[in-house]
Design a protein around this nucleic acid. Structure first.
Length: 155
DNA sequence: GCCAACGTTGGC
DNA sequence: GCCAACGTTGGC
């Protein structure tokens, strides 16, 4: 059982979208970074929990919690020429990119990026590293619980 | 919209 | 294998 942080642009998929989806679950597609993919492919398991982070938007920060509810499988968008995530070098025999399914767990307790940055306890999180672009990153248990406490302060 | 930081590509 | 050029990410 591990903890993660998943970044999403809410214009693409927001925590509200996830909460409103059938079964409150969606395929988490479009990862096109090898390090992020490797985390998903090699270390993510069913039952893992993740902070759902909204990036590139008006309210940047942790917007909710989701659960990983599938094992990794080939991201179907890599094979779809009509998708913005199409990858001409991916083949069915040798897929490059993986997806997992995620399910809504909790919304509310929004924690802005500025708040995360303000707490020395969270130094070292990949998210807060200068120039970080990782869309999937691990969260240590102590940091997970610290952020959970921050979320609880903001219903 | 700007720009810094980063990852990838491709020529050599 | 190096490294410049380019495209993308993402906060501000």
């Amino acid at each position: 059982m591990r903890y993660w942080l998943l970044k999403s642009e809410p214009d693409d998929i927001s925590i509200e979208d996830l909460a409103g989806a059938p079964q409150q679950a969606l395929a988490w597609t479009g990862i096109r970074n090898y390090q992020a993919r490797n985390f998903l492919r090699d270390a993510a398991s069913v039952g893992d929990l993740a902070f759902f982070y909204h990036s590139s938007c008006a309210d940047i920060g942790i917007a909710g919690i989701v659960e990983i509810v599938s094992t990794p499988y080939p991201d179907p968008t890599q094979f779809d020429p009509g998708s913005r995530y199409f990858d001409p070098k991916a083949t069915a025999e040798q897929p490059r990119w993986v997806s997992v399914d995620i399910r809504f767990v909790q919304q509310g307790g929004f924690v802005p990026l500025a708040t995360l940055k303000a707490h020395p306890e969270l130094e070292g999180m990949p998210l807060l590293a200068k120039g970080s672009r990782l869309s999937v990153s691990p969260v240590e248990r102590a940091q997970w619980e610290f952020i959970r406490a921050l979320m609880a302060e903001t219903p």
